[in-house]
C-alpha cells in the first residue's frame, strides 16, 4: 500500500478551503497550518499564466525528517504516511529544519505537527482526507498507488504531473497535475 495525493493545478482556484477544513478537522491551532496555497504568476500583462498549488507534507518515500529524528517520533506509518508520535517527540526541531518543503510546524503543545494525510481520523475509517473531501473544485485525488483503480492512480495515468524539488531526492508522494 502506498498512499499518495494528486492536486490538479488546472482546477485549483487557491481558495484555501483545504486549509480551513484541515484546521477545523484536525484542530490545528490558529496561526499554524498543515497545508497552504502557493500561487506563482508568470509573464507580463496580458500574456500571463498562474499556477496554483495546494501544498502540504509530501509524505516522502525517502524523507529527511524521518532520518534526522533522534527519537523515532517521526516515522513511516501505514501506506508510507509520515507521522509524528506526539509522546515520543522532544520538540528538537531537527525535522523542521530538515524538510525542504516547510511542511512542519512546532505545535504550541510542544511536539512537532504536520499533515497526517488524515490517516487515523479519516482514511482508516474509509473517508477521504478532510482537505480532499471539502475542495469545492474537486481538484484533489487521494488513494493507494498500489491499487491501479484508486482515484489517484487513475488520474496519474491520465494526466501529466510533476513533484516538487525532485532534485532534493526526497521522493515526494504529493503530485501536481499540470
Amino acid at each position: 500500500m502506498r498512499y499518495a495525493m494528486a492536486v490538479d493545478t488546472k482546477k485549483c482556484v487557491g481558495c484555501s478551503d483545504c486549509v480551513v477544513a484541515c484546521q477545523t478537522e484536525n484542530k490545528v491551532p490558529i496561526g499554524f497550518c498543515r497545508d497552504w496555497v502557493v500561487e506563482v504568476t508568470d509573464g507580463t500583462y496580458p500574456q500571463l499564466e498562474i499556477e496554483i498549488r495546494s501544498e502540504r507534507c509530501n509524505h516522502c518515500d525517502n524523507s529527511p525528517c524521518v532520518r534526522c529524528c533522534p527519537t523515532g517520533a517521526s516515522h513511516y506509518a501505514d501506506g508510507g504516511v509520515v507521522l509524528v508520535t506526539h509522546d515520543m517527540c522532544i520538540g528538537c526541531g531537527a525535522c523542521i529544519a530538515s524538510c525542504p518543503y516547510d511542511a512542519r510546524y512546532p505545535h504550541p503543545d510542544g511536539y512537532v505537527d504536520k499533515c497526517t494525510f488524515c490517516l487515523e481520523n479519516r482514511v482508516q475509517k474509509g473517508l477521504n482526507p478532510a482537505c480532499v473531501s471539502v475542495c469545492p473544485t474537486k481538484c484533489m485525488y487521494f488513494g493507494d498507488l498500489d491499487d491501479p483503480n484508486s482515484s489517484v492512480s487513475v488520474i496519474l495515468k491520465k494526466r501529466k504531473f510533476k513533484t516538487l524539488i525532485p532534485e532534493a531526492g526526497t521522493m515526494p508522494q504529493l503530485y501536481f497535475l499540470i
Partner: peptide
C-alpha cells in the same frame, strides 16, 4: 531549545544512526 521537554528522555530510548541529533 526542546519544545516538548517532558519527553527529553526519549532521546535515550533509541539510537538513530542517521540522526545527528
Amino acid at each position: 531549545d526542546l519544545n516538548h521537554k517532558l519527553y527529553f528522555w526519549r532521546l535515550y530510548t533509541t539510537i538513530r544512526l542517521q540522526s545527528p541529533m
